[in-house]
Design a protein around this nucleic acid. Structure first.
Length: 155
DNA sequence: GCCAACGTTGGC
DNA sequence: GCCAACGTTGGC
């Protein structure tokens, strides 16, 4: 793997959890439903093999729960075309798709959740968008040093 | 369930 | 292009 990039992606576990990814066919699933341009643009920058911190939001203990890797480059999010989908967006058409997604594959689940609350304590992570006040970005880049620091916290 | 922060929409 | 209104996110 050459020059993998690092990312963090949020999901509500009641909708799609790391367990769901682990149990999915080929332990792989499309990261659908992103409806934010900045987040979409980050997904367009992803490469096969990029590593992803899987984050659980809107739950008892919000935090990083494991690792996934990008297994397919960005392609149109077809849930935007499905009128019955929660993610339906009539402004996205197959001729001119507005939203993209990537596929991610399960890598590992941490024994303990790396809680958001604990992450606030570390100056090493002060520039991580996740812990900036009011940040709601659901897909964000993580620097190599931030990545290695967070991984070291899991040991 | 509350609500602060933020993004998007659309009238003008 | 401004900006008020509105909808969503997501921690608490």
């Amino acid at each position: 793997m050459n020059h993998a990039q690092y990312w963090l992606m949020k999901s509500e576990p009641s909708v799609f959890s790391i367990e769901d990814l682990k149990n999915a066919s080929k332990q792989t699933a499309p990261w659908d439903g992103v409806r934010n341009y900045q987040a979409r643009n980050f997904m367009r920058q992803m490469q096969i093999g990029d590593l992803v911190l899987f984050y659980h939001s809107n739950c008892d203990v919000p935090g990083v729960v494991g690792i996934a890797q990008v297994s397919r480059l960005a392609y149109p999010d077809y849930t935007a075309w499905d009128p019955l989908s929660h993610y339906y967006d009539p402004k996205s058409t197959s001729d001119n798709p507005r939203w993209d997604m990537v596929d991610v594959q399960f890598v590992t689940k941490f024994e303990k959740t790396l809680s958001l609350k604990s992450l606030y304590h570390y100056p090493e992570l002060q520039d991580l968008p996740l812990i900036r006040k009011g940040n709601r970005l659901s897909v964000m880049p993580v620097t190599a040093s931030q990545w290695h620091f967070m991984i070291s916290l899991c040991k």
